[in-house]
């Protein structure tokens, strides 16, 4: 793919930053503007600028993608689990094909296949990506820093009980642990066991106790 670079002055207005003299064409963003601009931040601006300039994407594409990133949250995953707890048929479909089951609820699970791994009373599941940072972000939002940390990735495959204990999750003796390492183009989502004491709860009530960490497997739903 070749794109001629005109080498001349070009439009800077695509992301709200203009060269408008003192007209100040963009809303002031104190968090950004008062912070020092690191080389990597400048590189990021430069890349965003160049891919637009070369027609590889549009400013609207960047804007829309940023909106999507902001909109993604663990609420989607929590809702899938709550629905699965209430509806055994839905649960079966979720375990068969997460992306299709999410679609039933109007949730876009993205193009990468996601597999649900269901806890049982004697087996607990936990997910990791030891090689990089694969994560079911369409259903969980951006991953926490610890999920991407060397400490979590290195240790959870070798001493899952010790790591879970650091998270405050003490599994009983007799509970088996299965760790899922996302080494290929498959993402994982844990479906915990519905805790007792939630009989008669609504989907919203149930979803509220399914936290992000429950969906990773580093916590269990807690009934207050």
């Amino acid at each position: 793919m070749t794109h001629a670079h005109d080498g001349h002055e070009h439009e800077h207005g695509h992301d709200g930053h203009g060269h408008g003299g003192h007209a100040h064409p963009h809303p002031r963003q104190p968090d950004i503007e008062d912070a020092p601009l690191t080389w990597h931040m400048a590189l990021t601006e430069a890349m965003a600028e160049l891919i637009v300039q070369k027609g590889l994407c549009t400013p609207a594409d960047i804007h829309r993608t940023l909106e999507k990133i902001d909109a993604a949250s663990p609420a989607a995953g929590s809702r899938l689990v709550a629905r699965a707890w209430l509806d055994p048929d839905f649960r079966a479909r979720l375990l068969q094909d997460v992306n299709a089951a999410a679609g039933e609820l109007g949730i876009d699970a993205g193009g990468i296949p996601i597999r649900a791994v269901a806890d049982t009373p004697d087996r607990h599941n936990v997910i990791v990506c030891t090689l990089c940072s694969c994560y079911p972000r369409f259903l969980l939002g951006g991953s926490p820093d610890w999920y991407k940390s060397k400490a979590y990735r290195a240790r959870v495959v070798r001493e899952p009980r010790a790591v879970l204990a650091e998270f405050g999750l003490h599994l009983p003796d007799g509970m088996q642990i299965e760790v899922h390492d996302s080494t290929a183009e498959l993402r994982y989502l844990v479906v915990p066991v519905r805790p007792s004491g939630t009989e008669g709860w609504s989907e919203d009530q149930l979803a509220a106790i399914v936290t992000r960490d429950c969906l990773i497997g580093t916590a269990l739903p807690v009934v207050a």
Binding site: Q29, D31, I32, H40, M41, T44, E45, I69, T130, L131, G142, P144, D145, W146, S149, K150, A151, Y152, R153, A154, R155, V157, R158, V163, E166, F167, D181
Partner: peptide, 20 residues
């Protein structure tokens, strides 16, 4: 490729993504 390597405690400090 860090699976199984020795490492310290998991730092769970929260982090809000910066705009950049």
């Amino acid at each position: 490729d860090v699976g199984g390597l020795p490492a310290g405690p998991v730092d769970r400090s929260p982090h809000d993504y910066a705009p950049w």
